[in-house]
């Protein structure tokens, strides 16, 4: 897939709460084609402590409105600067980067998308993509409290939504892997993105139940395009770059101790 360096325009910057913002970007030109699971590398200007680009997942693409959505969690200066962007300002991106989630051949496959924290970002795009192609899926989303559960209305457009919070303020109390949904049902394929301990717990559930499972990794990156070899993860094929061979990996390829 051809990659581009583009200046996109901030159409809207919606503060979701004091930790999260939704950036809606657009362009006078047609946005390039993108796949769910892919990400962009954002150049952050006017932040002296932010030297390298920041990798951010593609949260959603609305081709009709020519919109690209990025869901940002503030963790440091780079993400804070992104959340302070004003309407009309320009953001320079490398786009689209990385591989994508795979599609099962069987349209009747039972699909579960498990997300935690800001890791839900790529799952929204995946949900819309699946629905458009005639698949049906369920979402299981977790957070520390209800403030960390984002875009629930958006997710509901594309499938059933189940939630867990650690403090019980929304959905079932506990971690995603403790949700009752996982007791009864058998899924054919699980896609997951979130904090590493959560993804490992999901991978462990999938391994135990013999379920096919894809995870999206968030290793720190410098180039985002496979040239620096800084972002590697250990796999059955040796060190592979998360930015080009990933971010999505089937758990059977990873050397996780689960």
């Amino acid at each position: 897939m051809k990659k581009f360096m583009l200046d996109l325009i901030v159409k809207k910057n919606e503060t979701l709460n004091n930790q999260y913002s939704l950036l809606i970007l657009t362009s006078p030109e047609k946005l390039p084609e993108m796949l769910p699971g892919q990400f962009v590398e954002v150049r952050v200007d006017n932040s002296p402590s932010t030297f390298l680009r920041r990798p951010i997942s593609i949260n959603y693409v609305d081709y009709e409105k020519n919109e690209l959505w990025l869901l940002i969690q503030i963790v440091g200066d780079g993400t804070r600067k992104m959340c302070e962007l004003k309407e009309g300002e320009v953001l320079n991106l490398l786009i689209p980067l990385g591989n994508s989630f795979s599609l099962p051949e069987n349209k009747a496959a039972k699909l579960l998308l498990v997300g935690g924290g800001v890791g839900i970002a790529p799952l929204l795009f995946m949900g819309s993509y699946l629905k458009e192609r005639g698949y049906s899926c369920s979402f299981l989303l977790g957070g520390r409290s209800k403030d960390n559960l984002l875009q629930l209305c958006e997710f509901e457009r594309f499938g059933d939504v189940y939630t867990t919070t650690e403090d019980g303020s929304h959905g079932e109390r506990g971690f995603v892997t403790q949700h009752s949904l996982l007791n009864g049902s058998n899924f054919d394929l699980i896609y997951t993105c979130g904090p590493t301990p959560m993804m490992k717990a999901v991978a462990s559930y999938a391994t135990k139940t013999g379920t096919n499972c894809e995870v999206s990794l968030e290793n720190t990156m410098a180039c985002g395009i496979g040239s620096c070899l800084c972002c590697v993860t250990d796999t059955t094929e040796g060190h592979l770059c998360v930015c080009t061979e990933g971010p999505v990996f089937n758990i059977t390829k990873l050397k996780w101790q689960i």
Partner: peptide
Amino acid sequence: GNPYPRMAETPSGMLNAVGLQ
């Protein structure tokens, strides 16, 4: 090459420890 993490951002620069992969 070396195990991950191989990169750290620093003021106006970066450290790498790729190790000739």
